[in-house]
Design a protein around this nucleic acid. Sequence first.
DNA 1: CCCGATTGTCACCAAATTGTAACAATTCAG
DNA 2: CTGAATTGTTACAATTTGGTGACAATCGGG
Lengths: 230, 230
Amino acid sequence: MSEKIIVVDDEVDVADLVSFHLKKAKYEVITVADGATALPLIRAENPNLVVLDLMLPGISGLEICRALKSDPKTAPIPVIMLTAKADEVDRIVGFELGADDYVVKPFSPREFVLRVNAVVRRNAAGAAADRLVAGQIAVDRTKHAVTVEGKPIDCTATEFKLISILIERRGRVQSRDRLLSDVWGYEAAIDTRTVDTHMRRLREKLGKYGSYLETVRGFGYRICEDLPGA
Amino acid sequence: MSEKIIVVDDEVDVADLVSFHLKKAKYEVITVADGATALPLIRAENPNLVVLDLMLPGISGLEICRALKSDPKTAPIPVIMLTAKADEVDRIVGFELGADDYVVKPFSPREFVLRVNAVVRRNAAGAAADRLVAGQIAVDRTKHAVTVEGKPIDCTATEFKLISILIERRGRVQSRDRLLSDVWGYEAAIDTRTVDTHMRRLREKLGKYGSYLETVRGFGYRICEDLPGA
DNA sequence: CCCGATTGTCACCAAATTGTAACAATTCAG
DNA sequence: CTGAATTGTTACAATTTGGTGACAATCGGG
């Protein structure tokens, strides 16, 4: 039983590429070129995932995403956005839009498929799986919110990505380099020490739980596998 | 333990550049100029990654890629394509042949290395044993944790590498020189006596199991093959 | 266009880590 | 048993590493 994915993209090359790799990964793929026909199609097909290009003629990807998320019937369908520029990312995942993930063009096919797998799996396992928890620290990916002891704390976009990755891989040490390429992307020319600064800011916001964000000297950072009060 | 990469490129400048940056990133690099000799070499060496120029004299990069991916023995080896044109068509064709990622020339060395890291890492995950065990002593490489009788002990970076290698090669004696080049790196101008000091520190932290870290007089050190309580 | 929030970088400091040298203990050959 | 070679131990100085606060650049909203 294969999952159904709808790809919305006007560029034939990109659509073909995406479609090809998804099919190779055993997904059932439907592609649509324009936003106007996409919406009714998505409602009719009720796919397991929508891959959406940010730049579309007519209705933009943003609007489609917003429309999907505001309709209770389509809101649970996860959305992955394709975007040309890394700058646009924050707005996409963060605020108004409820996109579940994004991929910056040009992307590596392997990575793309892995992200698709992750999002689909997360949603298939039941809606609750979208919550990452480590002790009293919890991250809700759909709401884009972080809570400590149930109380929400206010994280910036970078901090959110950082803590998401850390909790997702809790117990395992993440090198600064690894965090850099996973959070900031390949093209970012950024000093690895910057990671330290963000860690400090995160710890500060985590309050007394900040100490569970461990430093592993010589290697990187990690969040404890089992925290007290879990 | 460094990963092996084969670079196939006929332009000496590019090959040198690529090779230089990969070596700086601690990879073992072999370069080949023409496609004809590349294939048998790849089969023989079974590298962790192949970097392939799309434009090659004789057999093209595309054909090599196709050949690699159609042979079950070489199919799992990841491939990164180098391409001169930012042309979408090239990308698509390259991907359809099963390349895992691509980099458009001229590329930023930083980004190139990051992509290489990502691809290699993804493939290495699961391949190498994450968990090394010798009796009551266990090393978890992803968590960067060492446990004795199940209780975690606190190791420094050097100690961690040292004990990892010893357990990985348990039973076999490791000379001080060997340990120096494997733990400290190829060109470490370090006194071999330093190894003794680190051994002592390790033994101390291993507590009563410290004695299983044997000295082989005149040769080096080893960890017993079978420890009591195994 | 201005303002506050966010973000990357830097310099400085404290602390952990690490290499080395000096000395003690042990082993081994004869 | 003696002495040389080898290894264990200890202490210490040098280096590396990460935390911290400050600051400038950039971004987005109003």
